[in-house]
Structure formats: structure tokens, C-alpha cells
Nucleic acid binder design. Structure first.
Length: 370
DNA sequence: AACTTGGTCAACCGCTGGCAG
DNA sequence: TCTGCCAGCGGTTGACCAAGT
């Protein structure tokens, strides 16, 4: 059965012979392809136009880069896939000389398995957690905090990258952080906190020192990016340090007594003994950017929403949500074990760039523009 | 040596959207 | 508005090959 475009023709299928390749190359280089449906006849091939097009685009095109993917290309694929999902053609546009088919095959045969082996869900880029852990509170809290977060649009949800943040007060977190399965490789050059000690603000997120115990539940309203906290830690000095950090890992900042070295080796987020801030701050995406997008389209800042959970004063509220989360299920790729420390004021939360209906960061815009 | 299994990747299939008539 | 053609896309298939038994 041939394609509808050539069902009346006697077409050959299967692998192309060198002679067929030669005919196609000769025809296209001298005449261009014009209408693909007319190519087989003009080139003297017993193929359908669609097959000719595919052969040219995926194999014969002179600007194709052959050979295995470099680490740089691999990172680019992961980064762009995190944003765009399985839009192979769009991903391939960021890899000169690579085709969508090639990228897709590489993803399915290599990257996908690699991510799974590292405990990362290749579809969501989330870390995969286990039901076998003995710390069910973490899962409940994750679920509880997921409920706090603005829910993304369905289409965006599959591509929203999630990272985890961990308690900086956990003695195991440094070890964990240094064993993060792969570099996110979106260096966070700048964390912008134009703030006073009790008020932090960026264009997308505003939170003040006004106490409002209900704010963690306002995620479905237009004001879902506004989160109030009862007090703010003094973090200016740490933020100042962070602004000078260049790392291939996302950045964690703690106002607690954690070693400054954690700044260089941790996932994104801002954590305090009393606060867990979800992907707090904003940062500039300017490394690898020419791999991701055209330079003139590089957003000057990539801003993310913030979720703040004050664990002391809102413990009851969190616990309510935890208790209401009864049907959580987690899948597990189990060669990446987590060792979290129980604490009443520090815990594990999902974290990451996140899209929602009312919030559009530059990188979201980039994703949609692609 | 023969067979099985699993991975890779070129090619195919079916669908969608744009466009012209 | 409808229809048909076409390019392009993502998912899937199957040929081929290498490693294992």
C-alpha cells in the first residue's frame, strides 16, 4: 500500500539503494525539489514523493551533521525538551545539522533511558520518587505543596520542568545535592532580590511581610502569584553572594547556618529554616542560550513564580492538606535513592519553573514562540 | 555454530493544518 | 464553506546488527 499521493504508481519501499540516492541527489541539486510529488517522476525513481522528501531531509541533505551526538547537543536536547516536550522538529531546530528523526531516535534510544536510570521522569523532568520510602510525609508534603502551586495549562504541564528543593538544614542534603543526576546546565547567573529585609519583589511575584495565613490557598485566583509571609529572613548578604555564583547547577540559598559551598552545588530554590521558597527569585538565562534560542530572543531575565510556605505558623494548614492527600501514587526508578531527614521545619518540596494560566514568563513565551 | 535478545535507526504510517480552487 | 492536495510532524515499525546464551 502506497501513500495516497502515489497510490496509483508502482512504488518501491524499504531501504534506499546508492543508485536511488544518487538519482535523488542529482535531481535536487540541479532542479531543487519543487513539488515533492513530482520529484519521483522527474528524478526517475520508483518512489513516492513523500519517501523522496524524507530521504532527502533525513539523510541526503548536504548540511546534515553525521555521527554521534556531543554532550553539548545532549544537554541542549534535554534543556529544550524540558520546555517543549516531544516537539522534535522544534528541538532539532536548535541543533544545526540534526533532523527531528535523529533527535527523536537519540532521545528514545539514549537520553530517555539515561534519565530514567538517574531517577528522572523523561516526560516531566521531575525526579521520580518512591512509594517505598519510609518518609511518607515527604510525599504528602510534596502533594500538599503541589496543591499550593498554580496549576499549569494541560498542554504546558507536560513540559514544565520541575526540580526539587531540599532542606538546607538536612545533613544529607549536601551529599544528595552533589549527586544530582545531571546538570540542568542553565546557569543561574543572577538572582535578583531587590528588596528590603521584609519585602521581596520581582515583576512577576510579590510577597510582603503582611501576615495572611490564607495566602497559600489562593493559588486559583488572579492573585495566585502573591504570597504573603509573616516575616522574612535577612537574606541580602546571601543573595549578594549568589549573584556572583556561576554554576551549571541551579542554586540554593539558605539563610540558615549551612555552608556557603552549598550555593555551588544545589538545585534551585531558596530555603530557610522557617521558610521553604519554591523556585524563589529570578535569574538570567544567558548561557547555552544561543543553543536554545536566537540571540536576539534571549530573555533578559527568566522569572519564576514563588511559593512560600511558612512551616511553623502554617503547620496545621499544611497538615490539613497532607491529610487530605490520600491517593497519591508515585512511580519509582529505584537506583536513585533519597535520604531525607525528618524535620518539623524543613522538608522536601517540588520545585521548578512552572507555568500557570495567569503567569507568563519570558521563557514560557519563548516556548510558545518556537 | 545456531539461535535469541535487545538496541539502533531508516523508513513508513496516519494525522493535521495550510492553501488553493 | 467544502474539497482535495500537499508539506510537515510525531509515533511506530521493522530491518539490521551485535552481544549474549
Amino acid at each position: 500500500m502506497g501513500h495516497h499521493c502515489c497510490s496509483k504508481q508502482k512504488v518501491k519501499r524499504g531501504l534506499w539503494s546508492p543508485e536511488e540516492d544518487e538519482k535523488l541527489i542529482k535531481h535536487i541539486t540541479t532542479n531543487g525539489h519543487g513539488s515533492w510529488s513530482s520529484v519521483p517522476k522527474l528524478a526517475g525513481l520508483q518512489r513516492c514523493g513523500k519517501s523522496c522528501r524524507l530521504r532527502w531531509i533525513n539523510y541526503l541533505r548536504p548540511d546534515l551533521k553525521r555521527g554521534s551526538f556531543s554532550e553539548q547537543e545532549e544537554r541542549t536536547i534535554i534543556d529544550v525538551h524540558r520546555i517543549l516536550g516531544n516537539r522534535w522538529a522544534q528541538i532539532a531546530k536548535h541543533l544545526p545539522g540534526r533532523t527531528d528523526n535523529e533527535v527523536k531516535n537519540f532521545w528514545n534510544s539514549f537520553i530517555k533511558k539515561k534519565l530514567i536510570a538517574q531517577g528522572i521522569d523523561p516526560n516531566t523532568h521531575n525526579l521520580i520518587l518512591s512509594t517505598t520510602t519510609n518518609n511518607n510525609n515527604n510525599f504528602n508534603i510534596i502533594n500538599a505543596c503541589n496543591k499550593l502551586l498554580p496549576q499549569p495549562q494541560q498542554q504546558q504541564q507536560t513540559t514544565s520542568p520541575l526540580m526539587n528543593i531540599f532542606s538546607s538544614s538536612s545533613s544529607s542534603s549536601s551529599a544528595f545535592l552533589s549527586s544530582l543526576p545531571y546538570n540542568y546546565n542553565i546557569p543561574l547567573h543572577e538572582i535578583l532580590f531587590s528588596s528590603t529585609s521584609d519585602q521581596y519583589q520581582n515583576p512577576n511575584v510579590f510577597w510582603s511581610s503582611t501576615t495572611n495565613t490564607n495566602t497559600t490557598t489562593t493559588t486559583t485566583t488572579q492573585e495566585q502569584n502573591n504570597y504573603n509571609i509573616p516575616h522574612a529572613p535577612s537574606m541580602e548578604s546571601l543573595v549578594s553572594q549568589a549573584s556572583t555564583v556561576t554554576t551549571t547547577n541551579p542554586i540554593i540559598i539558605s539563610s540558615s547556618s549551612s555552608s556557603p559551598s552549598i550555593l555551588n552545588s544545589s538545585p534551585c530554590g531558596l530555603i530557610d529554616e522557617d521558610f521553604i521558597m519554591w523556585n524563589a527569585g529570578s535569574y538570567e538565562l544567558n548561557i547555552e542560550a544561543d543553543q536554545l534560542i536566537r540571540k536576539e530572543e534571549i530573555p533578559t531575565q527568566v522569572l519564576d513564580p514563588v511559593v512560600v510556605v511558612e512551616m511553623n505558623n502554617k503547620t496545621n494548614h499544611i497538615h490539613e492538606m497532607m491529610n487530605s492527600t490520600t491517593s497519591a501514587s508515585f512511580e519509582r526508578s529505584n537506583n536513585f535513592d533519597f535520604d531525607f531527614v525528618e524535620s518539623t521545619t524543613s522538608t522536601v518540596l517540588p520545585c521548578g519553573m512552572y507555568c500557570n494560566n495567569n503567569y507568563h514568563s519570558p521563557i514560557d513565551q519563548f516556548a510558545w514562540d518556537c
